[in-house]
Design a protein around this nucleic acid. Structure first.
Lengths: 211, 211
DNA sequence: CGCGGGTTCTACCTTTCGATGGACGCCGCA
DNA sequence: TGCGGCGTCCATCGAAAGGTAGAACCCGCG
């Protein structure tokens, strides 16, 4: 631990949430909010100035870059601040990219204030805090490794999820209908399902495709 | 306008959001936060005490009742406070039930603080404020009236969305496969699609089924 | 009472899908 | 260098789903 207070940057597109984080964290001894950012781009620029210890980063910004990519860019620099994800969502599709991007912790916004402050201090020290729900998800991920789809397969499955027929997907991707069927067959075995709708259902559950 | 300050109840399961709303609204003259609730059930009980003018209500609570149902129960009583929805989401599936439940306004959490305060004053006066995105959605809804599915049809479509085959759906609902096909045919014409996956896609877009 | 709408069912035909098997090229590893 | 695994691509055939055209039942409502 250093002897100066921990300096925070709040990155969230919701003014109300920024005000709430500020209100909660500024009452804590040893914590100071020195800046706010309403977009991911602003957060990157502000974090580069070098006077920040911990960034509290939302994942979903209304427009522009997402929090995961911003996290990657912030942590890429030498001497970068720690990034603590504070978001509402805990789906697979969100948590894993954020953690891969170099986030030091992952909290949900329903966390009580004392947990939040504790996580900030932990992050400032370089150690990791995970929300229980996120930790569970990661453990499950390690226990049953999720089927990983190739680029082509996810591409095909995404179009299936939009309701396109095999023939239409083939035309869209400049492939034969037979090829689409072959890709789907592999997808079915990987996801352990036997129909396109079931594949879409489990893939969205696993966060393999959007929606 | 009355001469006493407008008394507010904050109903949101996120402590950070409650703190943010409190910080934003208490700096406004003529507004007082007199209570907070972390669950929909608490909000109903607190609103029944009669000393509240406006309830700021989230739609998504972690567990238990949702904000829409809580809104309905609060506004059902005589002399009930106004309910202003303040939420992150603006999907069809969320907005319409809330408005039907008697909400006086619908804001998104990315609203700037001054809009929030203005909406609270408008709500206290009994008039409606809608976020622009929500207003757009309602206008579109009026222009192209959404297909309405019967109970049976939504039931069938929900099972389709889970990946079941027509035969499996028939067994689940104690119906013939032919009946399922008949229901689906009607669903397709209503939604103007021609496949089960397309039906699931547009139905989820329209908020007719969950996920 | 008649009428419309929701629900259930039947039958036949066409289209699409899913299962299977095979082929080619790329890349890593022996 | 050769071999096998993997991603990609294609074709064939039985099974499932979709299109069409009915018909009957129940129930609420004018």
């Amino acid at each position: 631990m250093t002897d100066h207070p921990i300096r925070l940057l709040l990155a969230d597109d919701h003014p109300v949430v920024r005000a709430g984080l500020r209100a909660v964290l500024e009452t804590e001894p040893g914590l100071t909010v020195v800046a706010e950012a309403a977009t991911a781009e602003d957060a990157i620029a502000r974090a580069a100035e070098g006077d920040i210890d911990v960034v509290l980063m939302d994942l979903q910004f209304g427009r522009g870059m997402g929090g995961a990519e911003a996290t990657a860019q912030i942590t890429a620099r030498p001497g970068a601040p720690r990034v603590l994800i504070v978001t509402t969502y805990d789906s697979d599709a969100d948590t894993l990219p954020a953690i891969e991007a170099g986030a030091t912790g992952y909290l949900l916004k329903d966390a009580p204030p004392e947990d939040l402050a504790a996580a900030v201090r932990t992050a400032a020290a370089g150690r990791t805090t995970l929300a229980p729900a996120v930790a569970d998800r990661l453990m499950n991920r390690l226990r049953n490794p999720t089927a990983t789809l190739t680029r082509r397969e996810t591409e095909v499955l995404a179009l299936v999820a939009e309701g396109l027929s095999n023939h239409a997907i083939g035309r869209r991707l400049h492939l034969t209908e037979g090829t689409i069927k072959s890709h789907l067959a592999r997808i079915y075995t990987k996801l352990d399902v036997d129909s396109r709708t079931a594949a879409v259902a489990t893939a969205t559950d696993l966060g393999l495709i959007r929606r």
